[in-house]
Simulated scan of single mutants.
Amino acid sequence: MEVGVDWDQCEANGVCAGIAPDVFELNDDDELIIADGPVPADREDDVRDAVAQCPKAALFAKE
């Protein structure tokens, strides 16, 4: 699984970073950073949860 973001929708609310901080983080300028590469198998459920809870529906998972 990989995760992507619609940068036009993302407001960097940080909900995703709270759910899966090893995959999502906000930098010092409050910009979203997504870890490179595929999501580790043991983190997929949390990433799906982060995608579902994004307030702007800016995140998407690619299986």
Rank of each mutant, 00 (worst) to 15 (best):
C16Q: 11
Q9M: 11
D46H: 14
R48K: 15
C10Q: 06
A58S: 12
D42G: 11
K56P: 02
D42R: 11
P55A: 01
A52V: 01
D8M: 10
D6F: 03
A52N: 08
V5R: 13
A58T: 10
F60E: 15
E11R: 06
M1F: 04
A41Q: 14
L59R: 14
C10K: 09
M1A: 13
D45L: 12
F60S: 15
A41N: 12
V47G: 06
D49Y: 09
E2N: 15
D28S: 06
A52H: 07
C10R: 04
A41Y: 11
A20I: 05
A61R: 10
E2P: 08
E31W: 00
N27R: 04
L59I: 11
E2K: 15
K62M: 01
E11K: 08
D45H: 12
A52G: 06
D42S: 14
P40N: 07
N13F: 08
L59Q: 15
L26Y: 08
G37D: 07
D29W: 00
A41C: 10
A57V: 08
P38A: 15
D42I: 09
G4D: 04
V23L: 00
W7K: 13
D36R: 08
E25M: 05
A12L: 03
N27E: 06
K56W: 03
D22M: 07
D29N: 02
E2V: 07
P38E: 15
E31H: 00
V47E: 05
E31D: 02
N13E: 14
D6V: 06
E11N: 05
A57M: 11
I34V: 08
A57N: 13
I34A: 02
K62S: 06
C16R: 13
D46N: 13
K56V: 02
I19R: 14
D42T: 14
E44W: 03
